[in-house]
Structure formats: C-alpha cells, structure tokens
C-alpha cells in the first residue's frame, strides 16, 4: 500500500491516512492480515510527525480495521471488510462541499452526476464494464 497525502487538503493528516487505508482495502491493494508500514517508515517516508501516524493507526484499531501484533507491528484485521459505503460517504461529502461552494444544491448535483456518468458509459463501454466488474 502506498499512502499519498494531499497538502492542499484541509483535513487533518491522520484522517487522510485513515482514508488511504480504507481506499487500499476497497481497491484490494491491502487485504486481511497484510502488514501496514511501520509508524517509523511511514513517518519518514512522508516526512510527517510519527504521532500523526500513530493517531491514524490508533483510530483504525478502534474501528476494528487493523490490529497490533506485539513487537511485530500493525496488521489488517482478518475480518476487515472493505467499507465501500464509508468511502463513498467521504467522496459524497467532498463533492457536496464543492457543489455548495459553487452554488449547486444536492439534488442538482446528483442529477448532473447521473447525466455525466451516462454520457461516459456511452463513450467508453469498456471502462463502464470494468467498473461493473469492480462492484462484484
């Protein structure tokens, strides 16, 4: 799993790390019993405060997504399920925020998203099919 942080994202860094782990679970780059990078590794890699990484891992542990094996590090919980809904809600929140900033209402945005998605499926049938497959 690779963690990317967006410096322009105004959310706290630990939340961004948590979302990256959730995302990796959904797309399959992280699976049950996989190790997460150590706090030290990830902190050095991203040049961020190790406490921030610990905070993210701690929250994920509380949510049952990861667990700590003493002396070995942090691992994805055996029963961790990719939470498409939570991830989707986060995407929706970001989209709504951006919509409001642009003076668009939720209903308006949803209608437009449907319209745009339909247009994309017409133009790129193969891509639409791939998206379908992901859902299984």
């Amino acid at each position: 799993m690779l963690v990317n942080l967006d410096p322009r994202d105004a959310r706290p860094l630990y939340l961004q790390i948590m979302d990256e782990v959730r995302r990796a679970l959904v797309v399959g780059t992280l699976r049950p019993e996989d190790p997460l990078p150590s706090v030290r590794e990830l902190a050095a890699d991203l040049a961020i405060n190790p406490r921030t990484v610990s905070q993210a891992y701690g929250e994920l542990e509380r949510e049952g997504i990861v667990y700590v094996r003493r002396g070995q590090g942090t691992f994805v919980a055996p029963d961790a399920r990719p939470d498409r809904e939570a991830l989707g809600r986060a995407v929706a929140k970001r989209a709504l925020l951006e919509a409001r900033r642009n003076g668009l209402g939720a209903e308006e945005l949803v209608a437009i998203i449907r319209e745009v998605a339909a247009g994309e499926e017409d133009r790129e049938p193969s891509r639409a099919a791939a998206n379908q497959g992901e859902r299984e």
């Binding site: 410096p7 860094l13 706090v39 902190a43 050095a44 890699d45 040049a47 405060n49 921030t52």
Partner: peptide, 27 residues
C-alpha cells in the same frame, strides 16, 4: 524525513524557528 525518523526512535521535543512554515508544516 530524517527528523521524522529521529522522532519515531527517540522521545524528543523540537523547537524550530522559521519564516518558511510550509516546510515544517507536516511535522
């Protein structure tokens, strides 16, 4: 990155003065 590693290995307090805040913002 070295500073982050250092902090992970050793309990340390850091007081850093700068006029380029974005450089140390993530720490």
């Amino acid at each position: 990155g070295l500073l982050a590693e250092h902090l992970a290995d050793t309990p340390t307090t850091v007081l850093v003065s700068t006029h380029l805040i974005y450089e140390v913002e993530s720490l």
